[in-house]
Amino acid sequence: MTILSYIFLIIGALFFLLGGLGVFRMPDTFNRIQAGTKATTLGAFSIIVGVLFGSVENHLDWIPKLIIIIVFIVISNPVGSSTIAKATYRSKNIPDNLIQDDLKERGEKQ
């Protein structure tokens, strides 16, 4: 059980490292948001599964709190990143490498 737990923990830490590297290397804001959100969501998922396997022998009462944390992260992380993307678009900070832009023709009605 300890071995399984450490496998999940190392996979999760690798995805966190990948998220940081994606935020560092990507060229514009929208791609940074994409890399950061996906990698950190799976990283948190994997680390929490690892902690669950590691603590299930001694502490059965940890399981509900871990479930609460993972449900909250999976709901709130995409909502937060979508809000940042919308604010970035509205603040006229649009990268110039977009091939097609359907939001432009919507106009500024707000």
Binding site: S5, L9, G12, A13, F16, G19, G20, V23, T29, R32, I33, G36, T37, T40, T41, G43, A44, I47, I48, G50, V51, G54, S55, W62, L66, I69, I73, N77, G80, S81, I84
Partner: peptide, 19 residues
């Protein structure tokens, strides 16, 4: 964006410290 990713990594770190 960097702050959001940073916060997520810190949450994972705190859960790992519990173990």
């Amino acid at each position: 964006v960097a702050l959001d990713t940073f916060n997520m990594i810190i949450i994972g770190l705190i859960v790992f410290l519990a173990l």
